[in-house]
Nucleic acid binder design. Structure first.
Lengths: 186, 186
DNA sequence: GTCTATATTAAGATAGAC
DNA sequence: GTCTATCTTAATATAGAC
């Protein structure tokens, strides 16, 4: 194989694509090698812990991406409804219009060990917290804000599955349309 | 290994548990052998097509289970709200109170080939159709019935993921509580 | 119809050259 | 820091005894 090099961001991004699409069990070092252009031995050099460590890095990377593109925008001084609209566009990018599975779904099915499970749980809790805060800020009660945040995540995850199985992203796109109304007071 | 035998129903039921928990890629003949008590060679005798054929049988078996326990009860002459309540109990059983993943989710992630994908799509369409009919029967418009059926499936799939990642089935149990109200006119 | 035994391929992982 | 080469284990799959 020709000598190759790829920076940490690219390496993580391409690995994330593999893991979220094939799941933890479906992801192999051979497939990661094909996706990143690095030989297996090189992957072990960057991640001595092998597949487990890469999966953990992927989970951490996804959380970092959400923190930057989804959670942070919520802390701006703009109106809640406007912020929700901006965040919807970032979600559309992350899920490639509903064609790419959620990493939480793909990585939480089997395999992966307790450390990965903890990382996924932490990421989901951070997501719920961020959604709860924007609902709260829009004037909703604490209880109602929590309920709507959960509902929003459920809606995203569920509609992604429908879209995937039906081969039609309509359900996901409608979820995004309805998201600002769900997360903020009318 | 001691001589073993298991009837078709048990074989399918135990295989289903493996596939829905570990996903298509995570399921191996060794694990199926451990779960069913049959040696790998015996599994090939019952399913010459190997893993692919077993996965197809699992998809068909799940659809058959839903037809018997979920879709059929909808055709009784009882009141829609009452039927919805009975079906909720069957869903609680199938998903083991929210602790077992949905086969549609687990089997649609990667692997499995186009035949399996078609089987999953057919099962989901049948599910949506059944849910739409009970909503329609309760007096809702055709459009609203279709919307609520989709919403119900999204809610089930999404809450299962939340329950799995958080290690807490609260979200799924609330989904079941709200299901009769969602599927039928108030 | 299930078993033991085995063939073949691919998985995770490491050693060492460059 | 990436490569080639190799090790060990586990995967899918088949042959043939009982």
């Amino acid at each position: 194989m020709a000598y190759s090099t790829v920076n940490d961001d690219e390496l993580l991004s391409r690995s994330t694509d593999v893991f979220r699409t094939l799941g933890y069990e479906g992801t192999t070092l051979s497939r990661l090698s094909a996706a990143t252009g690095l030989e297996k031995a090189s992957l072990y050099h960057r991640f001595p812990g092998g597949k487990d460590q890469i999966a953990l890095a992927v989970a951490g990377g996804v959380l970092a991406w959400f923190q930057k593109h989804v959670f942070e925008p919520f802390k701006s001084t703009e109106a809640p409804r406007r912020k929700a609209g901006a965040v919807v566009e970032q979600l559309r990018v992350f899920y490639a219009d509903g064609t790419k599975p959620c990493a939480l779904d793909a990585l939480s099915l089997s395999g992966g060990g307790p450390e990965l499970a903890e990382a996924l749980k932490g990421a989901l809790l951070a997501w719920l917290k961020a959604f709860t805060e924007i609902a709260r800020e829009s004037g909703l009660s604490a209880a109602e804000s929590k309920r709507r945040a959960e509902q929003a995540v459920i809606q995203i995850e569920g509609s992604l599955i429908l879209s995937r199985v039906l081969g039609d992203t309509k359900a996901f796109r409608r979820t995004l349309e309805e998201l600002p109304g769900l997360l903020t007071a009318e």
